[in-house]
């Protein structure tokens, strides 16, 4: 399927907070409790619709451990949106948010939209960070905020989509210069370009000439 815009996302946050599970829940609508830990980066993509415009989300999922920061840092460049994830049952993952934001501020473009996600909200009996604290942090740093659960899918869809809505609004308002690729947005050919020369895939491939 062709798209009007392509938004590049990056998912960041401490190890074990559920970054890969959020991505899998969003792209495949399933929860996989047992999966390989992420080394370096992983990738996922999905189409969504905003104001009747097809938008493709291209999502880079990163390794959380400190040792991999030098690798993951290079993925901030050219990201339109970031999902910054912590685990509501592990206080330290919340305490580290500031250092993640610092990384983002240093390596991403200043107009990157950041969504703060308090994941694992299904485990409310083990909660170590209150919803208000999450809200407060988001407010102080100008982030959108949601608590979500990759396990139950609660708010997962919403988190990815409202980030896209915010980005879309920035485009409409002229805050983002879409001709500049470092903002992490690409314009697709919305017209029916099924006959893209030489590409041998299915017709759904048309227009996904992104890299």
């Amino acid at each position: 399927m062709s798209y009007a815009y392509l938004f590049k996302y990056i998912i960041i946050g401490d190890t074990g907070v559920g970054k890969s599970c959020l991505l899998l829940q969003f792209t495949d609508k399933r929860f996989q409790p047992v999966h390989d830990l992420t080394i370096g980066v992983e990738f996922g993509a999905r189409m969504i619709t905003i104001e009747n415009k097809p938008i493709k989300l291209q999502i880079w999922d990163t390794a959380g451990q400190e040792s991999f920061r030098s690798i993951t840092r290079s993925y901030y460049r050219g990201a339109a949106g970031a999902l910054l994830v912590y685990d509501i049952t592990r206080r330290e993952t919340f305490n580290h948010l500031a250092s993640w934001l610092e990384d983002a501020r240093q390596h991403a473009n200043a107009n990157m939209t950041v969504m703060l996600i308090g994941n694992k909200c299904d485990l409310s009996h083990r909660r170590a960070v209150s919803t208000e604290e999450g809200e407060q942090f988001a407010k102080e740093h100008g982030l959108i905020f949601m608590e979500a659960s990759a396990k139950t899918a609660q708010n997962v869809e919403e988190a990815f989509i409202s980030t896209a809505e915010k980005i879309y609004k920035k485009i409409q308002d002229g805050v983002i210069d879409i001709s500049n690729e470092s903002y992490g947005i690409k314009i697709g050919h919305e017209t029916h370009t099924t006959s893209s020369g030489g590409r041998d895939g299915t017709s759904s491939q048309a227009g996904s000439c992104c890299s």
Binding site: F43, D200, Q205
Partner: peptide, 9 residues
């Protein structure tokens, strides 16, 4: 070389 970016990944 025939694949789109996402299929390539």
């Amino acid at each position: 070389i025939k694949l789109s970016f996402e299929k390539l990944i």
